[in-house]
Structure formats: C-alpha cells, structure tokens
C-alpha cells in the first residue's frame, strides 16, 4: 500500500515540515494538562497524527525509518505498564491502588505527590493512545509485523 511518496510536492513538503511541530504540540498538550485543556488522551492523539502524517506523505522507506512499525505496539504496552506501575507504587507505602498521595518522599507534600502522579499517568495514557492509534493505522494499511 501507498508505495512511494504522495505525488504532489506541496503535500510532501508540508507534511515533512508540519510533522515535528505537531509532535512538539502533542508533547506540550500532554505536559500542560494540569493548567489548561489537554492531557494524555488529546496529546496522544496529536503524537499519533505526527507519526501518521509522514506515512501518508513521505516515501515509505523514509517514513517507516522515522517511526518504525514495531514502535506502535511497543509504546502502547509501555504506556499501559507505566500507568499500572504508577498505580502499584503507592501500595508499597501502605496506600490503596492508584492513591499517589500515600507515597512518602521527604520534602514532598501529599498534594504535590498527587500532582506528580497525575503527570506520570498522563504520560502513560499519552503513550498508550499514541501506540494504539499508530498500530491500528499500520494494521489497516497492511504494514504490520507479525
């Protein structure tokens, strides 16, 4: 499927130029979820778009070198695992599952701990959404590895 680049040079150049900025915006959305609209789900969507855009505009050999096919399932698993581990850590401190406030580190208040826990969870969710979306796209375009 989609061997070679998109025929129009304008689309190719815009796709190549826009992708890094979408990636940056996605990272900003993931990191900025505490203070404004955003968070893991939207940020993961933007990251996935940044990975998919080269696949539909650039030549295949280049696009799949930028974000390899196995990257999608890998990132999905890593994000999911990050979320789960983040939920398990408080249990070693006597708290409940996903109760980040129970983690005791000297000098960090419970509310700050929850703030950091939210950040880690958002990153995990972002990676999982990114991985899942890229995987579904690759699979639909018949580019997936077994």
């Amino acid at each position: 499927m989609m061997t070679g680049a998109y025929p129009s040079v304008v689309v190719r150049v815009v796709g190549a130029l826009l992708s890094p900025f979408i990636l940056l915006f996605g990272l900003y959305i993931v990191a900025h979820g505490h203070y404004g609209p955003g968070g893991g789900f939207a940020g993961g969507g933007f990251l996935a778009v940044a990975a998919i855009l080269p696949r539909v505009t650039l030549p295949e050999s280049l696009a799949y070198k930028l974000v390899p096919v196995h990257f999608g399932p890998l990132m999905g698993g890593v994000g999911m695992l990050l979320f789960l581990l983040c939920g398990l850590v408080p249990m070693f401190f006597g708290g409940m599952f996903l109760d980040y406030g129970a983690v005791e580190i000297a000098g960090i208040a419970a509310s700050r701990m929850r703030y950091l826990g939210i950040l880690v969870v958002e990153i995990g969710v972002g990676l999982a959404v990114f991985g899942a979306m890229v995987t579904i796209f690759d699979v639909l375009m018949d580019r997936s590895e077994t």
């Binding site: 505490h34 404004g36 609209p37 968070g39 939920g87 599952f97 703030y115 939210i118 969870v121």
Partner: peptide
C-alpha cells in the same frame, strides 16, 4: 492535587481507575 484543571485531576486522580480501564 494542586491541579487547577479539574477535568485532569478527575481523569488521573479521583477517577483514575476509570481511566485505567479506558486505556
């Protein structure tokens, strides 16, 4: 949670098990 955006604190803290399931 020191998080001004209530939707984010709901998503990842108060109701994080829901989010875990969705992920």
């Amino acid at each position: 949670t020191e998080t001004p955006n209530v939707v984010t604190s709901l998503l990842a803290d108060y109701r994080s098990q829901d989010t875990l399931g969705e992920t």
